[in-house]
Design a protein around this nucleic acid. Structure first.
Lengths: 339, 339
DNA sequence: TTGTAGGCGTTATCAG
DNA sequence: CTGATAACGCCTACAA
């Protein structure tokens, strides 16, 4: 492994000082065009690349963004991973590298994150972050953003969350505008904030349009394909004309139930899916030969936006504490207006 | 954001030199128990954490492992991500942090990886890595390992690959030992090495047991759920008594076809799945009320092992260039012996 | 066992 | 526009 050329070697080859080379490399300060060219060719000749560690030490800034992911059961890994890709992409666009911290529940990262000077800021994600970590980072004024919505006692954390309420409201509005009133809702779990929000959005839309809320049409604890199947089987007893789903797996199960009941989508029942898992959703759409109208979390964008917010905070810009991102409402062909 | 305490502040509080503190922090050299205690309490009092950047510069070693993921269509993102988790876990166990590089096809990382001194070594993964990168890193003697199997002209890269041949051979052996001879094979794509290897393993087992290879039973271009469905529909014309699948989606489709044909698993046909995607597989097993016998890639272990190999190379240990990891053969209840 | 001097590779600062 | 000098915070090497 050959030793990398250093700044002073470039400098002596170009016949200038290290500072001049540094200026050229960083495009900072003022360098005459002529010396700049000399330096550039020396850089090229030696194939010089700056040592980012030395640079980081001198600048006291690493241009590395940390990411702490708290994993949990009940959340599809694919979900997280898409967002991570987004964070990475966003960071990259802004000239930051991404360092992923282990997601060990036991461990606390706060002091390492804050004090090691390894990262300039951090993105937290996952439903159940270590509150102590979040609090410590928040209190130390270290730049951070949390992906999701979070209430921590005593503090108002910086967060970025998909706007589940508005999204579900919009989807439900859409069905109502098509004449539906017997609209089923198959939710995931009332224990999880995003899911409470979805139900909330559904209710808001009903209320707004003076449609009576019918508890028989609402199922709240469907996580899996099997749950979705069962919920739909039961829901069908109550003759809904439409249904709003809340995750990909339950959608899979529910649609199987609809098919088994001999009903057709969208002729007999309109379906709005929830596209948690893009790949699976696509596979499934292909398989059933139907493009589902669905709500989708723009995961990549969400991650990018989180990275951007983190960097904004790092660079000292004014950033609101609460940030929301709209869900995407994909209008495909699994819904039909009621005559 | 309060300034972090430095080595010399700890030193003066403890009444010793910075070197003594450094020795205590790194557990290196020799320090008397008494001064050690003094130093430790000073560290505690000031809540000292070493600045890893300064340390990295001084040691010319960052304890950061790089990861470059080349994404591509046709590979389930979940697949990659599980491995990434493994790499992260493995690195973490060995005291390394993980830096994830963007997976931009256009970009070349080699010079940045090699020369920036940001990472001590790198793990590459993905079917279609940038050959130039791999080559450059290889030639520069920079520590790296590639996850997957790879032939690059002129070089023998360090790699770690699941042993697809042995795995599929074992699964096929198992079916043959149960009396099956009309064994179907639904593969993914002959363009992809892992998939060629799977077919190879299947053929090896047949050959070994003098079972005649029947091309009618072999389907090679099934990627999706729909493909799997179609392939199985056709395969059923040829009355197989068993079938070996090669990814989760095709398995989904194939089993739907089996059900629609009115056949029962395992009574009418034995099925060996391929558990690409653990979560989906689990969902599906729950849904059909059957635990599939399946081949599984130990993704987490694969990632961990890759990290370990990379670190071994970094620390100068002797590491073989070719490394294989066995697939896991999960014997559940979707296979039955033939009378 | 402990301390001193110097350097890791870069950039900030200030002078020229 | 350019250069000298002193950090950045820690560790290696050697000396005491």
């Amino acid at each position: 492994m050959k030793k990398n050329p250093k700044l002073d070697e470039v400098a002596s080859l170009a016949g200038v000082s290290t500072m001049t080379v540094s200026r050229v490399v960083n495009n900072s300060g003022t360098v005459s065009e002529k010396t700049k060219q000399k330096v550039l060719s020396a850089i090229k000749e030696l194939n010089y690349q700056p040592n980012v560690i030395a640079r980081s030490l001198a600048k006291r800034k690493t241009n590395i963004l940390g990411l702490v992911v708290y994993k949990e059961k009940g959340v599809h890994p694919e979900f997280h991973n898409e967002i991570i890709n987004g964070v990475q992409a966003g960071a990259s666009e802004l000239g930051y590298d991404l360092l992923v911290f282990a997601h060990n529940e036991e461990e606390s990262y706060s002091s390492r994150i804050i004090q090691s000077s390894l990262v300039d800021g951090v993105v937290f994600m996952g439903i159940s972050p270590n509150n102590a970590d979040l609090l410590a980072v928040h209190n130390s004024q270290f730049p951070y953003i949390y992906i999701g919505k979070r209430e921590v006692e005593g503090v108002e954390p910086f967060f970025l969350s998909p706007d589940y309420i508005a999204g579900t409201e919009k989807a439900t509005d859409y069905l109502i505008s098509q004449g539906h009133t017997r609209i089923g809702f198959i939710g995931q779990s009332r224990k999880i904030e995003p899911d409470r929000d979805k139900l909330h959005g559904y209710q808001k839309a009903l209320f707004k349009h003076h449609v009576v809320y019918n508890p028989n049409l609402v199922f709240e604890e469907s996580q899996s394909q099997l749950d979705g199947y069962k919920a739909m089987m039961e829901l069908l007893q109550h003759k809904p004309s439409a249904v709003v789903m809340n995750n990909t797996y339950t959608t899979l199960g529910a649609i199987t139930a609809i098919k088994e009941a001999g009903l057709k989508i969208p002729e007999d029942i309109s379906v709005i899916g929830f596209d948690d898992n893009q790949e699976l959703n696509q596979q499934f759409n292909d398989f059933i030969g139907l493009e589902l109208t669905a709500l989708q979390i723009p995961k990549l964008e969400l991650g990018k936006q989180a990275a951007k917010l983190a960097v904004s905070i790092i660079t000292g810009e004014e950033v609101p504490k609460e940030n929301y991102m709209d869900l995407v409402f994909l209008q495909k062909n699994s819904c039909l207006g009621l005559k």
